[in-house]
Design a protein around this nucleic acid. Sequence first.
DNA 1: CATGAATGAGAATTCATTCAT
DNA 2: TATGAATGAATTCTCATTCAT
Lengths: 205, 205, 205, 205
Amino acid sequence: MAYRRTRLMEERLASNRERIVRATRRLISEGGFRHAQIAAVASEAGVSTGTIYRHFPSKAELFVEVLTAAVEHEIAILQAVIEAQPDPHKALHAAVASFVRRALAGPNLAWAFIAEPAEPEVDAERIRARKLLGDVFKAVLKQGVNQGVFPRQNLDASAACIVGAYTEALVGPIGPSRKTLRDKERLVDAICQFCLRAVGATGRG
Amino acid sequence: MAYRRTRLMEERLASNRERIVRATRRLISEGGFRHAQIAAVASEAGVSTGTIYRHFPSKAELFVEVLTAAVEHEIAILQAVIEAQPDPHKALHAAVASFVRRALAGPNLAWAFIAEPAEPEVDAERIRARKLLGDVFKAVLKQGVNQGVFPRQNLDASAACIVGAYTEALVGPIGPSRKTLRDKERLVDAICQFCLRAVGATGRG
Amino acid sequence: MAYRRTRLMEERLASNRERIVRATRRLISEGGFRHAQIAAVASEAGVSTGTIYRHFPSKAELFVEVLTAAVEHEIAILQAVIEAQPDPHKALHAAVASFVRRALAGPNLAWAFIAEPAEPEVDAERIRARKLLGDVFKAVLKQGVNQGVFPRQNLDASAACIVGAYTEALVGPIGPSRKTLRDKERLVDAICQFCLRAVGATGRG
Amino acid sequence: MAYRRTRLMEERLASNRERIVRATRRLISEGGFRHAQIAAVASEAGVSTGTIYRHFPSKAELFVEVLTAAVEHEIAILQAVIEAQPDPHKALHAAVASFVRRALAGPNLAWAFIAEPAEPEVDAERIRARKLLGDVFKAVLKQGVNQGVFPRQNLDASAACIVGAYTEALVGPIGPSRKTLRDKERLVDAICQFCLRAVGATGRG
DNA sequence: CATGAATGAGAATTCATTCAT
DNA sequence: TATGAATGAATTCTCATTCAT
């Protein structure tokens, strides 16, 4: 008799570790660290609390892994987007647009990057995450400055400002009220323009 | 001999309500929401926990009042700074520089504006606070655009981006490492330049 | 109308701290460290678990306090008994008899002195307690040796052996089966004789 | 070249049951009952936790078996030592010295005989173990009394006191500080003298 | 109005035991 | 027979809030 995999079986086949990570990501995305209690994660993942501790030594380590994975994912995407562009000007525009668009598309961890941490270990990871994000933009800026596309500037400060600018625009008061696709694209564009002007981009390439 | 009020004297003279608010502000500034437990606030204010509940219905309401007062204070300062300037360009520069400088000077509530809230009520106030801050910049931008000093742009987005940019630069990875006065002034300048370019300021006036 | 104190009120007047200590002592005496969980102590003391943490920073500290108080109490009694005797021989006899008799009289903490500790902090106190008990006997032995009543011997070893000997006799297999007063007195006497012979006491004074 | 069995080889050759018992004994010896969790035992034995439950119905039963085996081993040694001696006086000396020397030599289960048990079933075995140890000494005492070498005395009490005396001397405060071989031999001697005097031994033979 | 001890519902973590493979 | 991931009841500790004095 042929073996048939049910949907439930498929779910079970996703290793519990993965399911725990996903459940945590979902809960943090939707309600913040506060809503990602161990019991809630266990319930959401369909496992027992003990199982979480088989895979992670503590709640803090679980959060760190989730944040690390999320930021690595974001950065990988950003870098792919950047490398696909012919010049720093277009690269910066594409990178910001990509990030903002994805963030507006649905529940995400963007806000968690600016969240007050519950645990010192999580805090350290949050700082690292923002630093890594900033570094991506810093590299683009550096190239642009070297090529004379952007004026000389404090690269660290500009990179941080870019991260802060679009993050705020996403989680701040104007973000949640935007609903239609058209509105969203307008916001994406406005943020991109802001950032490009901010770094001194004057025209094309 | 002239009568001089010490900090301690001020504290004693203040009503309990005021002392509670100040103690809360101090604790949030220094250690975040997490460190401003009711017992800690009571101890810092020199009152009992019961007294706090005589003046505030809940911890959340206390936090909301502290945030509200803090943001009103910041906004009042910003507006005074802005009004003292002859044009939108200088006003924007002065406003950003003022905020950043004050934030770098010592413990402050800046970070709390972007902190993950402990309570939904506090969250609402945080959103409102950021909105109010953004409105201050939006007004300057609007005036600038009307005067032709700044190009047309999405004022809401730009205002939010400005708030996000300098906040990130303050609480993000590059903030804490800045130590010397010289370093600080460089950071202030870099952030101001970033914001001015971002809104399309092209020259003086 | 005259104020009348009820039994319940009297109970309440015993400060909760004291009631917690008593409840802990009772539970440890009857069932060992294992039975003195925070919830059980709270229930036995008639307070909430939170109240325990108002008075003690941790379960370990509570246990340490209980053990410390118990051993200080025992030692005070031992020393009073010893000082009331005219010579080291009688003092040693009286001290051992006193301790053993009291231990046989009812639930006590004697066994806790030899218990495997649950927490390192408690362990440290247990070691200290046994050392203190040993020191009391060592002092008597020393005096006896100086007076020529006892022969020269390793005072530390002898003192430890005495403590071990009567403790084992109390908590070991022969202890619990003894029931009648007569039986108990025989045991007291046997242990005293054992210890006196052990330190080389040859006759009176 | 002769075939030499290494420790590792022995372990591999032993049945899983035996390896579990040995691992448990090792862990209890080194860190006490608290460190002998099922997972730790499984890891130390190189088997899975499930395998432990194939051989033992519960953790308590495993501990009981380990204690039983250990005490039987000790008793067999004691009896061999005793039977090799020509008279009760020498037998008692040799028995105590043997036990104490072995205990001082390295990690052992001696302390476990006086440990607070984790489970009632283990407790029962502990009591039985101490009783068996006491019986060995009781037999020697009885013979000595019958031969007129020792005075009449409460044999049960004396036997228990002997066990307690040397156990305390081993695990009590004076034990761990002893380090050098010379120190250890002095302690062995002091304990033997104590016990011999305690049972009324007056001279040789 | 002020006090501060008491409350008790949570939250994180542990670990003996089970059972599908 | 062996495996080891999963279970979940049990335990310690926290802290916003209440209320008798």
